[in-house]
Design a protein around this nucleic acid. Structure first.
Lengths: 200, 200
DNA sequence: CCAAAATTAGCACGATCGTTCTATTATCAG
DNA sequence: CTGATAATAGAACGATCGTGCTAATTTTGG
């Protein structure tokens, strides 16, 4: 059972497979990701692909982790360069919107959350863990804004995190079903109304 | 091509099939709804089920319409008994939350919106139509609240509709992945902060 | 360069998919 | 009650699914 790639080429192939798998899962969901289609996309045999992950479920888990890592690198890390408080919180929010926009075929994490929220299993547990971590990150950023005196001291950080999450979900929904521009403006407007405009 | 049920028993069977299909689609999404599983659930043959709808896609469309009708009857219609303005808007919102809560295995409409937002076709078009209609209904209710003097006259009804939608999406997400009670309280709190408490 | 190990392909399996065709049975209008 | 029609079953189709097994090929450390 060689789950882990052990050779140079093995690692490279696995990475390439994950990229293809990410694209498929973005468009069709983790449930719509099949070994056959992935093999076709990567130009190799089904069993060759299979050997890299050990099972379909392990492939789905790998894609989920891959997506989470991308998200962290593309949204959270860049925002950490902004000053703690309102500036950073807004950078996180805007980066998050950009993430949704740039993943034109869909966001595998959001799709997975809907697909597995009612199906017990390892995948659901992983998703819950990811979302818990992210919400906690969000709360931290809000709390820093409170501590910086840029939000009233009695602000409920979890409540703000909940509402911010809702704004991004609505943005995702409207941008993909209706038009992206109005959705972006409504999201930002709601953010500014909720958090107050930056103190410049 | 007998798409329409023409006999008494035909209609009854079709209705029963739709109920089963609704339950399956709620749990697994429209994409996870197969003729085989539906036939098994209904206790009849696959071809017998097939004959009732003509194709899988037509079955999915029928389930979608079925869900939309249920939603209208269970959320919108009851709320129309409340007085125009803030009372009705809040009735809509609370009824909507209850809809999410009561559909314990999931909401087929929300799942479908995520599943098909990036896949062109009749299903996507139908979903866009449904969501457009519902958002318009929402805007109407907000506008009535403005007209009743229970919201500032310069309120942007579409903006409020967008944010309300986001609150329900966040509620759906958290209630199904985390715990339902905090999610319900956060939703209601956000509603009251956004719309103001009822005037009496 | 060699041998050990990792990678990949090929093939087969049982299962399920949506769909078509042909019977058979149930329902209904007259 | 009867003849027409609708409803349903049954079997078969080609495809695709995830997974196992075996064999060939590549890569790698020594």
């Amino acid at each position: 059972m060689n789950r882990l790639a052990a050779t140079r080429k093995g690692v490279a192939t696995r990475d390439a497979l994950l990229d293809h798998a990410y694209a498929i899962a973005a468009a069709q969901g983790l449930e719509g990701l099949s070994l056959g289609e992935l093999a076709r996309a990567a130009g190799m045999s089904k069993s060759g692909v299979f050997a890299h992950f050990g099972s379909r479920e392990d492939l789905q888990l790998a894609v989920l982790d891959h997506a989470a890592q991308r998200f962290t690198e593309e949204v959270l890390v860049p925002a950490l360069r902004a000053k703690r408080g309102h500036a950073r919180l807004r950078a996180i929010f805007v980066g998050w919107l950009d993430w949704v926009r740039d993943n034109r075929d869909g966001c595998p994490i959001l799709s997975a959350a809907i697909e597995y929220d009612g199906r017990p299993g390892i995948l659901r547990e992983r998703i819950v863990a990811l979302q818990t971590r992210w919400r906690s990150e969000l709360r931290r950023a809000v709390q820093m804004t409170i501590d910086a005196g840029e939000l009233p001291p009695d602000t409920d950080a979890a409540q703000v995190g909940f509402e911010l999450f809702g704004l991004v979900l609505a943005y995702h929904h409207d941008a993909r079903l209706f038009e992206i521009e109005p959705a972006a403006q409504q999201s930002l407007r709601a953010f500014d109304r909720l958090l107050g405009r930056p103190v410049s």
